[in-house]
Simulated assay, not measured.
Amino acid sequence: MMIGKLIGAGVGAALSKETRKFGGATGAVLGALAVPVVSRLRLPVLLALAGGGYLAKKLSDKGKAPEDPSAST
């Protein structure tokens, strides 16, 4: 279980470098705390979370897309 927390902390720290809201240490703590929570969730809940994250990312990217008037046909 400790290895999972270390991996989660590493992933959290790496992901936090891409955001401005969290620092490396905060991301590491959140990643380490997320591992036991995710390990207790059931498969349908995990699939729903993954689908919601994918949808949120798509909507976020759609809102940030620069409009290019020459690209429209």
Rank of each mutant, 00 (worst) to 15 (best):
A32Q: 06
A56Y: 15
G10S: 14
V45W: 15
T73Y: 15
V29P: 15
T26L: 09
V29Y: 00
L47Y: 11
A50T: 05
A34F: 08
M2C: 05
D61N: 13
L47I: 05
L49H: 05
L33I: 12
L49I: 02
T73M: 14
R20A: 03
L59H: 04
L30C: 13
I7D: 11
A9C: 12
S16I: 02
V45T: 08
L47R: 02
G8W: 00
R20E: 13
G51Y: 13
G12I: 04
L43Y: 04
S60P: 02
V38Y: 12
S39C: 09
K62F: 13
M1D: 07
G24Q: 08
L46Q: 03
A25H: 06
K58L: 13
E67V: 09
A56T: 05
L43Q: 09
K64G: 10
M2Y: 07
G10F: 13
S70P: 01
L6E: 09
G53I: 10
T26F: 08
T26W: 06
M1N: 08
A13H: 02
L49N: 03
L55W: 15
V45Y: 11
L55V: 04
L33W: 00
L30F: 15
A9G: 15
R20G: 06
S16Y: 01
G12F: 04
L43I: 07
V35S: 09
S16K: 04
L33M: 12
V29Q: 02
R20H: 10
P66Q: 01
E18T: 09
G4S: 11
G51N: 02
L15D: 06
L43F: 05
L55R: 10
D68K: 07
S72E: 13
L15I: 07
A14S: 10
K62P: 00
G52I: 04
A71Q: 04
E67D: 14
L6T: 10
A71K: 04
G8M: 00
L6G: 11
S60R: 14
